[in-house]
Write a protein that binds this DNA or RNA. Structure first.
Lengths: 337, 337
DNA sequence: GTGAAAGCGCTAACAA
DNA sequence: TTGTTAGCGCTTTCAC
């Protein structure tokens, strides 16, 4: 059992109130008592009990973060930014892996509520009515990362998916491509799925290029496997493609592996641009050209938003962070005909 | 402000002691009062305050985990296993990114101590005397993951690095290779660096193959970049190598990328086996044959060890988890001469 | 079967 | 400048 403020008080021959004062850097004691107290703290190696502090201050100095999948590179990068900012701001972060499972998410929300976390970060998933209700009843700030809600008023930080997809596709156009296919994620996904398809189509339309539904593959997810199985299908449907926009880096890597198996040379016979700029992008062969989302920064910005809501008690503006294309070697410039 | 046990008691017309009893599933009340209390809890949507509970029970139901780098795939996989087990066991996990920085680590230890976490998981890094002292003074269970300490008595869970490196190298031998090089990590690293080199040498020795220091590159780390710069050097020192054991998957992928640039065909001209079996291993071209560490399982097992120490108060045995080689396509079988 | 009351370690209002 | 005291929300004796 470690020492309490009482022990320190006794040791320093002062009251616990005085100890509390020097502990919290308040005024109301002489230099001499401060010395005495500090000395006692050092001698006893006293550590204030954050739980007792939390009980009275009604602050746990802890925030919760919910991921559909903590072990993905995507989540890990966001977590890195969050962890950095949270600690800089004097708090800790509890991580929860929801596995995109509603009931599990509810259990976590319950848990975080009982633990009296000061705020919640919600990543990638969409907010159901059930989530909203309990989030709302907790009366603590919530910030969404890499997702948004059209129905519920939570501030968010993300990239403009449609715009980023436009940028990726437009980059391909500028590199001389006109037969451009897309390896899409789940089109039911209104936040990260459909908007990227819209951006792709808009880029094509803006350059006067035809939009052909045969040139799009809609996968169920954004995974390597989806890309691996998706590419052959896409090439079968549209054999004259010279470039592909993949809606995630994992999808793109899967496509590259499939292309390798098919003997299709990247980028000589087929160019590919990805989306995310995960660490794997630069490990690809060839290194993957991709549209970067500033994941760590998104985590940091979201955390800062959360804290300013916690401190000032008022809502904060959502933030759209800039994306940019990272040129590597998976896209080849071709001469327009 | 949410409701307290007092409100529930008032609402149900019982004492707070009774509410506490039903909350904790203790005996000492009639079926009828239980109903009343449960009803009141439901109506008020009462949520017990875990902080108040923690103050009195002296348990925070929280454990801390320290990583040198949370955002690596390696850490993320371990975290996934830990998160799973921790929640199954009724706790939460606070993550800390030490950046392999001593002072930062000390700050986190301090923080976790003040938060009165029930246990600590320490990943990949080695325990300094300073860490040991504060860990020891916290008087809570500690379990090491993917590292161990020769000087301090913390139980650990890891793979047998030397043995796993032996297995990897021996696999290459069995596939007919006799000119085998190694892309090593930091040899100053007594836990993950040197043992893998030892395992490699032992496998060679056991098969009567010569050990040539020119066939080993010692990098500073285990990263993609290290592999990328390491391979050309290795090939320059020993141009007749037919196979390479890389001490990590990242190192192996870096080597594969470098080989690609050099025009060296994998596995036709050079075979490569990795170490870790991260998700990136199967995304490589060609898919990487590697020695798998069961990272998620390591996280789960370590967590279970931690909890059994917390509950039973006594030390627990360290665990060496089995490794195995995952055959993919980066190693070619060659006929012995 | 149920309630009153003490107290976990701390902060903050109020006195002195 | 300093101490006394009343809680924060809960668990747990100890009475009844």
């Amino acid at each position: 059992m470690s020492y309490t403020i009482k022990d320190v008080a006794k040791h320093a021959n002062v009251s616990i109130a005085t100890v509390s004062r020097v502990l919290n850097g308040l005024s109301g004691y002489s230099k001499a008592t401060e010395e005495k107290v500090l000395q006692a703290i050092k001698e006893l190696e006293y550590q204030p009990n954050a739980i007792a502090r939390g009980l009275i201050s009604k602050k746990s100095n802890t925030v919760g973060i919910l991921f559909p999948e903590v072990s993905s590179q995507f989540s890990a990068k966001i977590l890195r930014g969050v962890e950095e900012a949270v600690h800089r701001l004097g708090s800790s972060v509890i991580v929860c892996n929801t596995a995109s499972h509603g009931q599990r998410t509810m259990k976590y929300l319950q848990l975080l509520s009982e633990k009296r976390v000061d705020g919640i970060l919600f990543v990638s998933e969409s907010i159901t009515e059930e989530f909203y209700k309990t989030l709302d009843s907790m009366k603590i700030p919530v910030v969404l990362i890499s997702t948004e809600s059209y129905q519920y008023p939570f501030p968010f930080v993300k990239v403009d998916d449609k715009h980023a997809a436009f940028t990726a596709t437009d980059y391909l156009v500028r590199m001389g491509h006109s037969k451009i296919g897309m390896l899409g994620g789940n089109k039911e996904d209104l936040i990260a799925g459909q908007p990227r398809i819209d951006g792709y189509k808009q880029a094509l339309a803006q350059s006067g290029l035809p939009i052909n539904e045969q040139s799009i593959i809609h996968s169920l997810g954004f995974s390597f496997k989806d890309g691996f199985t998706g590419l052959p299908k896409l090439l079968e449907q549209s054999s004259d493609l010279t470039a592909i926009f993949a809606a995630s880096d994992a999808l793109a890597l899967g496509a590259i592996s499939a292309a390798y198996k098919l003997g299709v040379k990247i980028p000589d016979e087929l160019s590919i641009i990805g989306y995310d700029n995960l660490p794997i992008a630069e490990m690809a062969i060839p290194p993957l050209t991709t549209v970067a989302q500033p994941l760590e920064e998104m985590g940091m910005v979201a955390t800062e938003m959360l804290f300013s809501m916690m401190e000032q008690g008022r809502r904060v503006e959502s933030r759209i962070l800039p994306h940019c294309v990272i040129e590597r070697e998976s896209v080849k410039e071709i001469k327009p005909i």
